[in-house]
Design a protein around this nucleic acid. Structure first.
Length: 555
RNA sequence: GGCCUGUUGGUGAAAUGGUUAACACAUUGCCCUCUCAAGGCAACAUUCACGGGUUCGAAACCCGUACAGGUCACCA
């Protein structure tokens, strides 16, 4: 038994299994060589971030496009930052956006797949086996430096204007003999396990990134921490172990990880593990108050949390479409050329992924969302809005519940036209725009006061109401009905069009638009509404008369 | 500060050495129109961060400069 093995046994006396044993437990996946295995690996520190959703979407797409596997892994190795329950929350939100993992973590009681556990805190044993192996091979060692000592080292480095970190001559614990290390461990001195880097910072190596292209990076020479004093791994080590044994083929993550790529490469090479491919995605940016670019921030930007879009009632496909336009520059053209086709049909390619971060553009999402809602039929729109309302809007749910078909009629206004109306940006806007179709809400609007223009005299308004009641025939077809309205209006002095009004200022003071405005405001309580003919038809003659007579009577 | 990455209009971007720098969002104007929402048409980068070079020819290639972002933890 050599010294390193003794050290390893001293630190992990209860670990009997070897690296080979673990390898056997997680054999290569039985999939074709072109199939990609991707993962989404959030740390449960809060709600799902819009940028993370984008990353997850891409990972899912890459797996799906290649008939591979997409799995979800929870990276909960930092117990200090952990927010209770957010692992399940993130998972649920992901699924709401139709990003359903093929395997991985679903909840505390449900995991799918043979490569688990998929929650890092439950994989402690595996990490320890690997670390023990590394110690016994002289690839890793215990470090007894305290936070204070580390801090002192950093200060010296800063003073000398050298790189900060635990490396080279500063990595004092790497020179401890196994014997010395054993006695310190036995003496109960706290320690972490560090990687013994063989890299040279002055030397470079070539590496290909799917997004960034060919890179030339400095070798790593940091003796980074593998296992923290609490026995849990750092991100770097967990990445090595998990992505190796779960047989990830391509790691898709944010570009904040690019700087530590040399560490990961050295780790994979040292263990003799097959390197994975990498795709480092740019982060979504935003212009802050001072005019500077910065990352979308969960604290400052409501749109950084996906719940923002869920609550506002944007269709999930709209957000996904938008994120895809950022992720693949050719997606927008494809989307325009294939209206209504699911984005699942689109082939994602890293060749069209920008390498710098886009500014988040809410206007664009609104536009995409409007299009999306306009394309839905009245029935579909009602179905989706109703589903949304169950979770996010009592008021909307309540009016739909009163009479589902009545609501469908409202949502169907002019849907059969060549260019359907784009009335709503999201489900959250519907209620307010639709209230007037309901008598109790109309009553509310009426009581607040109808917004009739002040240059309309009471006499004029009464005249219009009387004329409309007498001559308007709701049984007519739309065009005919409107023609009749024009004629009637003309009888009481309203020009039938702009030209006539302009050309005959002595005859006309008002035109048909004004006539209709009076009716519109009285019936709907607003100056703008969808096509009046359809509104009136849905509300029905008795209630129209009621509203008109009420106004006339109170003038 | 070191290292890495990037820079085409207000925004997302196309164009990978060859005529007027696509397209989409936003904005503005006009048309259509019962209002609104749409829709149609048009305007919006004399120029691709800046300086130099290579070339018959550069937004594209090379070199500098500037600016921006990322990163330098027992956080991920």
């Amino acid at each position: 038994m050599n010294e390193y093995t003794r050290l390893a046994d001293t630190i992990f006396p209860n670990i009997k299994e070897t690296l080979e044993d673990i390898e056997k437990k997680y054999p290569p996946r039985n999939i074709s060589s072109s199939a990609e295995v991707t993962r989404f690996a959030p740390s449960p520190t809060g709600f799902l971030h819009t940028g993370s959703l984008c990353t997850a979407m891409i990972a899912k797409k890459v797996a799906k496009d290649s008939k591979g596997i997409f799995y979800l892994r929870i990276e909960d190795t930092d117990q200090k930052r952990e927010v209770a329950g957010s692992d399940e929350q993130v998972t649920k939100e992901l699924i709401k956006f139709n990003i359903v993992p093929d395997e991985g973590y679903f909840s505390e009681v449900l995991e799918k797949g043979k490569y688990g556990p998929y929650k890092q805190s439950k994989r402690e044993y595996i990490y320890q086996v690997i670390v023990k192996h590394m110690i016994s091979q002289g690839m890793a060692y215990p470090c007894f430096c305290s936070f204070e000592e580390l801090d002192a080292i950093r200060k010296i480095q800063e003073a000398k204007k050298e790189r900060t970190g635990y490396y080279g001559e500063y990595a004092t614990c790497r020179n401890l003999t196994p014997g010395e290390a054993i006695s310190r461990v036995q003496a109960g001195i706290p320690y972490v396990i560090r990687f013994k880097s063989k890299g040279n910072h002055m030397e470079h190596f070539a590496i290909h990134d799917e997004v960034k292209g060919d890179l030339n990076l400095s070798q790593n020479d940091m003796d980074i921490v593998l296992l923290k004093s609490d026995g849990l791994p750092t991100y770097h080590f967990a990445h090595l172990v998990d992505d190796h044994f779960m047989h990830t083929t391509i790691v898709i993550r944010g570009e904040e990880w690019l700087a530590s790529l040399p560490i990961h490469i050295e780790l994979f090479d040292t263990l003799g593990f097959k390197r994975v491919k990498y795709a480092h995605l740019p982060v979504i940016m935003k212009i802050d108050e001072t005019g500077k670019k910065r990352k979308l921030s969960k604290r400052k930007d409501p749109e950084a949390a996906v719940s923002f879009f869920l609550e506002a009632g944007y269709p999930v496909e709209a957000l996904m479409d938008y994120l895809l336009t950022i992720a693949n520059s050719n997606y927008e053209q494809w989307m325009l050329a294939n209206p209504g086709v699911s984005s699942d049909e689109f082939k994602f390619s890293f060749a069209h992924t920008a390498s710098d971060g886009a500014l988040f553009d809410l206007d664009k999402i609104k536009n995409i969302s409007k299009d999306n809602l306009a394309r839905k039929s009245g029935e579909q729109l009602t179905e989706y809005a109703y589903k949304w309302s169950k979770e996010y809007s009592k008021d909307l749910k309540e009016i739909i519940d009163r009479d589902y078909n009545y609501f469908v009629k409202i949502m169907s206004i002019e849907k059969d036209k060549e260019n359907p109306r784009k009335d709503y940006e999201n489900y959250g806007e519907i209620f307010d725009k639709v209230k007037f179709f309901y008598d109790d809400y109309y009553e509310e609007i009426y009581n607040k006061g109808l917004d009739l223009r002040s240059d309309f005299s009471h006499e004029l308004i009464k005249k219009v109401i009387a004329n409309f009641i007498e001559y308007s025939d709701m049984k007519l077809k739309e065009e005919d009905w409107f023609e009749v309205c024009k004629e009637n209006a003309k009888q009481i002095g309203f020009a039938p069009n702009k030209k006539e009004l302009k050309n005959n200022p002595d005859i006309y003071k008002y035109m048909i638009a004004d006539y209709m405005e009076i009716i519109r405001v009285i019936i709907t309580g607003r100056k703008n509404s969808p096509n009046l003919y359809y509104c009136l038809n849905i509300i029905g003659l008795p209630r129209i008369l009621e509203r008109l007579e009420k106004v006339a009577g109170n003038l």
